[in-house]
């Protein structure tokens, strides 16, 4: 599989079809992976592919304006590219998607070092990227059996709580937030040139690491991703404080699905949720 990735990368660079290939290479610990930016044929052998290739690399597309980019892309990563395309943040012709039929990634936070498929992979149905230019499949049937699991199990559990219980739950979780903004920075869809959290004229919410400031930040972040988040789960993985950010994202995703029958990141031709309307909308604000 890695050979196929390397061959493709080599071809892309050699034929000057792309200026750079974004993929994965071994991290300094010799176990994990780190994003790799390959612009010389000689560096292609650094590329790797394994369960530690956890990052959603589409986050780096904005770092190379005006360049043609080849990018190693898992199913979930391709979905975020779909949204970027829908939102005119990318030109399709500028990227060459080396799609990977992913069999799941490692949960590095789990103690004991056993390789377990990440929680976020369990609800991932199409492991095949919705868009790609070349698809590289797992050779052997390494695919982990995907449990027919309710993707909203944890959300449903939270929904049964009373308002007070919910508040208490999130207050506890957000109390550990240190406002490092890793959740925002790792998110391919958090691309605002000036985030609402940094605006000072006016300042929209408190910078203090407090109940109010932390609630405002975390809820705002999630709301800005309503109808856009494709649940790659990178925010939760990046959070050093272990805040279950996916639960908020999933709740909004579920609401969007139920209210508007809309699912983000599946179709580049689809209009973004918030730039479309339906004349038959039950609310009268549209008329």
């Amino acid at each position: 599989m890695i050979d196929q990735i390397k061959t493709k990368a080599k071809e892309l660079l050699k034929t000057k079809k792309v200026d750079i290939v974004i993929g994965y290479k071994k991290a300094s610990d010799r176990i994990g992976a780190i994003p790799a930016f390959i612009d010389k044929e000689g560096d292609i052998d650094k590329l790797i592919w394994d369960g530690y290739c956890v990052y959603n690399l589409s986050n780096y597309l904005k770092d190379f304006p005006g360049k043609k980019i080849g990018i190693v892309t898992k199913g979930c990563d391709a979905k975020s590219m779909t949204v970027l395309l829908q939102e005119n943040q990318l030109k399709r012709e500028d990227i060459f998607i080396i799609g990977i039929e992913c069999s799941g990634i490692v949960d590095e936070k789990r103690k004991g070092g056993d390789i377990a498929y990440d929680e976020r992979c369990k609800g991932c149905k199409p492991a095949t990227p919705p868009i790609y230019d070349v698809l590289i499949k797992e050779e052997e049937k390494k695919q982990a059996p995907r449990l027919e699991q309710d993707p909203y199990e944890s959300v449903r559990k939270l929904e049964t709580k009373s308002i007070e219980e919910k508040f208490k739950f999130w207050q506890d979780e957000f109390s550990r937030c240190i406002r490092c903004y890793a959740c925002r920075q790792i998110c391919p869809l958090c691309y605002c040139p000036r985030c609402v959290a940094e605006q000072t004229q006016p300042a929209w919410f408190s910078k203090a690491v407090s109940v109010e400031g932390n609630f405002s930040w975390n809820v705002n972040r999630a709301m800005h991703l309503a109808g856009r988040c494709i649940d790659c789960g990178e925010c939760e993985r990046a959070c050093p404080a272990g805040i279950p950010l996916r639960d908020i994202n999933k709740k909004i995703e579920k609401d969007v699905k139920e209210l508007f029958s809309y699912e983000a990141g599946v179709d580049t031709e689809q209009k973004p949720l918030f730039s479309s309307f339906d004349k038959n909308d039950p609310e009268d604000f549209i008329k």
Binding site: F37, C180, A182, P240
Partner: peptide, 27 residues
């Protein structure tokens, strides 16, 4: 080269026992 993977978040600085840079903010 080494900064390319960096996502410009504050994990390294905020979790560092010696990073001390701060901001002064009126609220």
């Amino acid at each position: 080269e080494v900064s390319r993977p960096c996502i410009s978040c504050g994990v390294c600085t905020f979790l560092c026992p010696t990073c001390h840079c701060f901001d002064l903010v009126d609220e």
